[in-house]
């Protein structure tokens, strides 16, 4: 613990106190139609948004898509949406998820400004379900769209939630070779957001 004390002592000596705690006001995106903006934003980050009235309709819409039709292994953490081929909760070792074609995951909230969807770790048996499959479908309710990240963090109350969580905005991508955008770097090759309600 010598290092810890030494570092903190140096920091206490060198820090210049007095900077006021900033108040996060005067910011916040405003959109007349959150759902329309969400669809636009998901498209802009390389995903697709499908609006459906209810969960059975989400299920039907998903089953009609090639990512479901052509899939051999499907995990679904959203009851009633997608034809799961196995129960992901019974998988002990996440390595067994390799070869997964499609994950259907619940989204806790959606951010209209940037198309991101919050995935809550506590609701998933494995973090790998987000990145290991070829395709990801996220199911989120219209009522859970917030305008921007400020509103999202205000609702998330992260201090009360252990484990992991992430914002996912579109499919995995890279532009590391001459800045050519390539979709499907390591994670999902496509992302569909099923917006319910």
């Amino acid at each position: 613990m010598a290092a810890r004390e030494e570092i903190l002592t140096a920091l206490r000596r060198n820090a210049q106190p007095g900077a006021p705690r900033p108040v996060l006001d005067g910011v916040g995106a405003k959109f007349p139609d959150l759902a329309a903006r969400m669809a636009e934003a998901v498209g802009a980050v390389g995903g697709t948004l499908v609006r459906v009235p209810d969960l059975p309709a989400a299920d039907a819409a998903l089953r009609a898509l090639p990512i479901h039709r052509d899939a051999r292994r499907i995990a679904s953490l959203v009851p009633g949406v997608g034809a799961a081929t196995f129960d992901a909760a019974t998988v002990k070792d996440p390595h067994e998820l390799e070869g997964l074609d499609l994950s259907v995951l619940p989204g806790t909230l959606a951010v209209a400004e940037n198309g991101a969807v919050w995935i809550e770790g506590a609701r998933l048996p494995h973090h790998a379900l987000v990145v290991i499959p070829e395709h990801v479908a996220l199911v989120v309710a219209v009522a859970d769209i917030v305008p921007d990240l400020h509103a999202a963090y205000a609702r998330l109350d992260l201090a009360g939630r252990p484990r992991w969580g992430l914002f996912m905005a579109g499919p995995s991508k890279t532009a590391d070779i001459e800045q050519s955008l390539v979709i499907g770097a390591h994670g999902a090759r496509s992302l569909v957001v099923l917006l319910v309600g």
Partner: peptide
């Protein structure tokens, strides 16, 4: 950084996973 509205994965690790 790149002109994207947000990074694709913004992951919050709050303690280890199970």
């Amino acid at each position: 950084a790149t002109g994207q509205p947000v990074t694709t994965y913004s992951t919050h690790f709050h303690g280890p996973r199970r």
